[in-house]
């Protein structure tokens, strides 16, 4: 049985990315009032979450439908593994290459994005194609 690539759901991918980027900018501006470095670090912290998460969403919706359920689950596991690995690599790169870095701003923005992103996906869900 060959997997079907026909799209069943409409992914609001751009909408998610736009809202997440807007959230990062707002949080960065809030940290910017403390210092320029804090604002920059907050922006980087948000990006560390958004980039692996965009990959996860893209990979998870590679296959759709009951006929491809085994491929959906396999892709979900692989996407999660890559997402965690990418996050670790990005954090390591920031702590090694970005000098100096405002750690509270970086981790706070990352944690806020981690909590807010599933809520965003709950309110703006993939809709079935008509």
């Amino acid at each position: 049985m060959s997997p079907t690539r026909k799209r069943i759901n409409r992914l609001p991918f751009l909408q998610w990315l736009a809202i997440e980027t807007g959230l990062i900018v707002v949080l960065s501006l809030a940290w910017f009032t403390e210092s320029r470095l804090a604002g920059y670090s907050a922006f980087v912290g948000g990006l560390i979450y958004v980039i692996p998460n965009a990959y996860f969403a893209h990979r998870m919706y590679r296959f759709e439908g009951a006929r491809n359920a085994h491929l959906v689950v396999g892709n979900m596991f692989r996407a999660e593994t890559v997402k965690l690995a990418l996050t670790a690599v990005f954090f390591a790169a920031v702590f090694i290459l970005m000098e100096p870095v405002h750690v509270p701003a970086l981790l706070f923005t990352f944690a806020v994005m981690v909590v807010l992103s599933p809520l965003l996906r709950w309110f703006i869900r993939p809709q079935p194609q008509r």
Partner: peptide, 20 residues
């Protein structure tokens, strides 16, 4: 699938912060 996708986001919240 959509519900699993949303739950996956909630599920990996704590490990992601832990990695950071």
């Amino acid at each position: 699938q959509t519900k699993a996708f949303i739950m996956a986001g909630l599920l990996d919240a704590v490990p992601m912060i832990g990695v950071g």
